[in-house]
Design a protein around this nucleic acid. Structure first.
Length: 831
RNA sequence: GCGAGCGUGGCGGAAUGGCAGACGCGCCAGGUUUAGGUCCUGGUGUCCACUGGACGUGGGGGUUCGACUCCCCCCGCUCGCACCA
């Protein structure tokens, strides 16, 4: 917990609250950060992931918006037209759950929280073009989300299908695969997800699997996010081929049934000793023999009740449950029959739902073979002395007919060529990525704009009748059922096509649909005849800097990429716009005592308290100073007091309250040293801003302030022009980080608005120092430090180093074997 | 198991292959102050025979005149994926 300390005495006149309120009002009233389309300056689009309106801001928000705001202000000072919009991801279950608890309509609840969050965001001094605000539950936004849905429907990118889906029994809705964690619990509610067969709406994200994978290469994103997306897409290349079902003697079935399998290792086909189908495979009943039927049906029933995750990850699953069907399939490579099993580790949803099993070159198959007493045959020669089980490495093929002697890559190609030549199979690419399930059985989301007509089937609501809005006169019951499902007025309407009575769709869209295009709406939020104009999108997109939490690495960031590509292909967005976010930065989490800070853990440190005491600038600076922005931080490590003290010191310095009075004089060596150090500071802070090294930028400014304190307190007093130049520069460099204090001081010292000033650029001629400390090493160990002219030659440096008495003592008369000279900083004498 | 990242003082952390520990917190001392706090100045890796020296960036090896930094092996922590054929 934060220690309650006495508030440091204020520097004279530094009234944090008054100053911060004054400048927040200034930026609002002067529309400082509003930017119009068509602005002639070079464009830069900075975006923080829009938040779910949860009420007052928490520390994660503060951190996120501090980074974003810093970039907005820095880029503006660099002369860019910076688009900095903000909005709210305002659909979602918390509002609906609150409605069930309290009876307050989700809109009222959400609007209240949005207002709270907006005002606490403003209190940290983050600036936005609020004219462009969008929120998901705004009817004008709903209209265009629905419009896009209908365009996807027309294009075949949205479709309805019966599928085994993830059902969350707590939130009473289905979930997308991406919203179920590896342990089988729901990402949002934590409930153990069940499997149900339901008819649901999907977006055909798999159409873009290859492009989503390929285009990752060109993105300036954290590598781990790209890796996570690549894993999620899960491309694998191989062959699919079919095998006729036969009996133990190799006699084909009269009905000519065959099983299609997918493999990435067709080169090992000669080693196939059995085959496996998923228990849900449509051919199960057809292939099962009479004497095995009872066992097979028992197994299928047992598996049917389990979720994918239970099947794939639990301990029982790893024990390789399976059952023999009594049938065999003929391996086309050897023409021999192998037994056909069912096993729950084979999934119907991937590949063909059936696999060939090669125990000698696949550990999973090896384990299953051991458990069920099946043989194995090596087809890739393992290395000498191999004592492992399955060998998955490369080696010359054996026992493999025409593949014998080949290495893996050649053998794969040869095996596929052979399959294609025989007309038995073909090269195939599979993806792990599934289509995106977007329907949710909840009230507080964007309604799916279709009706069901007995005559016409699924009928879209015509564009001119959008938006379809949920009714207000609804009652929320703790049944878990969406009130839309029982609202007669909403449910019944007439068919847009045949005018007959129809039933409305009562499902709403996943809230990730809303967040998949909000960054496009920000470019043109006033558009009333399209979700946005292609010209406005072309003007601002892609987002130059996107900032958010790594928890969205797959979900939001994959969906938004899909939307961008799909909208471009539908001609709604410019065709060339293939990616939404050029650069992504994922900030670290804030922990408290090692735990994630969150409402549910009850370990929040409220920013409001700190804003009341130390103020926004100190809080922002503390977040920037604590460490590298991409790293997680513990709140204990956030040095608020130190940052607050620093700002007070800066205030006193800038107000002329430190040291003796400044004097007018010609430049002395000391003055010049200060001036040069200020140019170096400009270079340092500028570079640090570019490379997201804010902690070192703050440190450099603190160091400069300490130097200026000593300078101001020096015997001869500070030179007035030198001190002013140094302080003014320091204020400019800090303006993006501590906007209120620097604005106030600038106005008092210089007049005008600091954030309208140009970013200071160093004079390259003054970046060097004239005298430096040269390090003299003997055998790599520092033995002396000597002040030298910065411009000395190698020979001079060597001479000076060898003249050192300390060095002579170390050498003890020995002759150097070698002298490494890096003038003017270092000489290393090797003996 | 696979993949990625990380291991530096009491703490958060700095350091393009070239002075390890910038900056801040904490702590110690001095000054200011009636006192405490604030504020100002200085000190603060460990050890020793203390105007100096030895050791020191998870452990071990290597490359190099020189390694926190590059390479190999090991240990530990964090995150992601995990029967995807």
């Amino acid at each position: 917990m934060r220690k309650v300390t006495t508030i440091p005495a204020m520097a004279d006149g530094y009234d944090v609250q008054a100053i911060e309120a004054k400048w927040q009002a200034y930026w609002r009233d002067h529309k400082t950060y509003e930017v119009d389309n068509g602005d002639p300056r070079p464009h830069f689009y900075v975006l923080c992931m829009y938040p779910y309106p949860s009420g007052r801001a928490h520390m994660g928000h503060v951190r996120n918006y501090t980074f974003g705001d810093l970039i907005v202000r820095h880029r503006t000072m660099l002369g860019n037209a910076v688009l900095s919009p903000m909005g709210f991801d305002s659909f979602g279950l918390p509002a609906e759950n609150a409605a069930i608890r309290t009876g307050v309509h989700p809109r009222t609840f959400t609007d209240d929280r949005m207002a709270e969050l907006r005002s606490s965001i403003e209190r940290i001094g983050a600036v936005y073009d609020w004219r462009r605000e969008v929120h998901s539950h705004d009817p004008s936004y709903i209209r265009w989300t629905q419009w896009i849905f209908l365009r996807f429907l027309e294009a075949g990118l949205a479709y309805r299908a019966m599928a085994p889906v993830n059902w969350d029994p707590v939130d009473q809705t289905v979930l997308a695969n991406e919203q179920v964690l590896a342990d089988g619990t729901a990402e949002r509610s934590g409930a153990l997800v069940e499997k149900r067969d339901l008819e649901q709406w999907f977006f055909r994200i798999t159409d873009y699997a290859q492009e989503l994978l390929d285009d990752l290469d060109g993105l300036d994103w954290p590598e781990r996010v790209k890796v996570m997306q690549r894993n999620w897409i899960g491309r694998s290349e191989g062959a699919a081929f079919s095998m006729p079902v036969v009996d133990a003697d190799g006699q084909e079935h009269a009905d000519g049934v065959s099983v299609e399998v997918f493999t990435t290792r067709p080169d090992t086909s000669f080693g196939m000793t059995y085959a496996v189908m998923a228990p849900e495979h449509p051919l199960v009943s057809a292939v099962t023999t009479a004497e095995r039927r009872a066992d097979v049906e028992a197994f299928v029933d047992q598996v049917a009740g389990a979720s994918d995750v239970e099947r794939m990850s639990s301990q029982e699953a790893l024990s390789k449950r399976g059952v023999f069907t009594g049938a065999y399939v003929r391996n086309p490579f050897t023409a021999s029959p192998v037994p056909l099993y069912l096993a729950d580790y084979v999934l119907m949803g991937y590949g063909t739902g059936a696999v060939m099993a090669v125990p000698s070159e696949d550990q999973r198959d090896w384990d299953f073979a051991v458990a069920h007493g099946l043989p194995h045959l090596r087809t890739v020669a393992p290395p000498q002395g191999w004592e492992g089980e399955a060998f998955t490495g490369d080696g010359p093929h054996i026992n493999s007919g025409f593949l014998d002697g080949m290495l893996k890559d050649d053998a794969i190609v040869a095996a596929i060529d052979w399959l294609e030549g025989q007309g038995l199979g073909q090269r195939q690419v599979n993806f792990r990525l599934r289509d995106w399930l977007v329907s949710r059985q909840r009230f507080w989301g964007c309604p799916i704009p279709v009706v069901y007509c007995d005559e016409c089937g699924v009928v879209p609501i015509p564009d001119d009748q959008l938006p379809v809005l949920a009714p207000d006169d609804v009652e929320f019951q703790p049944t878990g059922q969406s009130p839309l499902q029982s609202h007669e007025g909403f449910l019944h309407t007439s068919c847009p096509r045949c005018s007959g009575p129809v039933r409305r769709e009562t499902d709403t869209m996943d809230t990730f649909v809303d967040s998949s295009w909000y960054f496009l709406r920000f470019c043109d939020p006033w558009s009333s005849d399209a979700p946005f104009s292609p010209a406005a999108v072309a003007e601002w997109m892609p987002v130059d800097q996107y900032i958010g939490g790594v928890e969205h690495a797959i979900l939001h960031l994959m969906y938004a990429r899909f939307f961008t590509k799909a909208l471009a292909d539908q001609g709604i967005a410019p065709a060339t716009m293939r990616e939404p976010f050029s650069r992504l930065f994922t900030q670290g989490m804030i922990r408290l005592d090692g735990e994630k800070m969150s409402k549910s853990k009850g370990n929040l440190v409220a920013p409001d308290e700190i804003l009341d005491a130390e103020g926004a600038d100190a809080l922002r600076l503390a977040h920037l100073f604590v460490g590298p922005p991409q790293e997680d931080v513990d709140w204990e490590g956030v040095g608020l007091d130190g940052c607050s003290r620093f700002l007070q010191r800066l205030w006193r310095l800038a107000q002329g309250e430190v040291g003796s009075a400044a004097v007018v004089r010609d430049v002395t060596a000391d003055d010049e040293q200060i001036e040069r150090s200020v140019h170096r500071l400009m270079a340092k802070v500028g570079e640090d801003y570019e490379r997201w090294s804010y902690n070192t930028a703050v440190a450099a400014c603190m160091e400069a302030t300490n130097d200026l304190y000593r300078y101001a307190q020096s015997e001869q007093g500070p030179r007035v022009d030198t001190l002013n130049f140094a302080v003014d520069t320091l204020l400019l460099l800090l303006a993006p980080m501590a906007p209120h204090l620097t604005a106030e001081l600038w106005e008092r010292r210089r007049g005008g608005h600091i954030h309208a000033e140009r970013w200071p650029e160093p004079n390259p001629d003054l970046l060097g120092v004239d005298r430096v400390t040269m390090v003299v090493q003997v055998n790599g160990k520092v033995r002396d430090r000597i002040e030298v002219e910065a411009g000395i030659t190698s020979q001079q440096a060597e001479d000076i180093a060898l003249a050192s008495t300390k060095v002579a003592a170390q050498l003890g008369g020995a002759t150097p074997r070698k002298v490494v000279v890096r003038p003017p900083r270092l000489v290393n004498i090797v003996v």
